[in-house]
Amino acid sequence: MSRQVYYFMYGFLGLIFLGAVAFKVFQPIQVLPRIRLAPGFTLYDAQGNPVTSEDMRGRIALYGFWAARCRGCEQVLPTMTYVAKHLPEQPEWQAGDLDIAFVIIDVDPERDGPVLAEYTQRLRQETGQSWFFVTHPDVRYLKTVVGGGFEVFFAKQGDVVEVDPKYIIVDGWGIIRGEYAYQTIEPNHRRLLRHLNVLAQEIHNSKGAARVAYEAAHLFLCYAK
């Protein structure tokens, strides 16, 4: 009898230990890292209305860096359009209670002014999401925000603008939660969709007792691959 109880006890403790190991190894809860603060900015849309980092507070924002004639950013619009179209199919996004903005920062303000309005209109209609095409006439300021803040390199090379391809997910707190600079085996649009789903999951579930588990996932670096 007593031996059985011992076995039971050891088994119980073993289970707790295995549970902790399994939490780290199998990561039942995955989160996106809280990387650093996204920059604060005032940029302008095609109509000259200011769009600021404060306008993005409380909603998720996906940033892309782009110019109409660029080298390196060719995939930005197709990728973000794909994400915008397919996001509502993601399980955590089906509730439809989360707000997301698709923000394209144009790094060639001298030339691209007029095309921005057209693109904004078209992508809004095509995807049914809220899009912002923004820029700033002062290239030095753009460098401060895009280069210094988002850490995205761009430079004018004769007729084209060279842009490092990069996507950035920022949460409602203004914290960068994902940076996607390199193509992996999984194409960027799939990865972005998956990660936005992980973020939505955390927003929906990290409440009360579950918050402790989510914070533990941050502490143990259980980051989505």
Partner: peptide, 24 residues
């Protein structure tokens, strides 16, 4: 301010003392 995610913008003529500054 940009590096620390702080937005700020002057609003001219919005107060008796000259202007106000909106900021995070």
């Amino acid at each position: 301010a940009t590096k620390y995610g702080i937005y700020y913008k002057k609003r001219e003529g919005t107060s008796e003392s000259g202007y106000l500054v909106d900021h995070t």
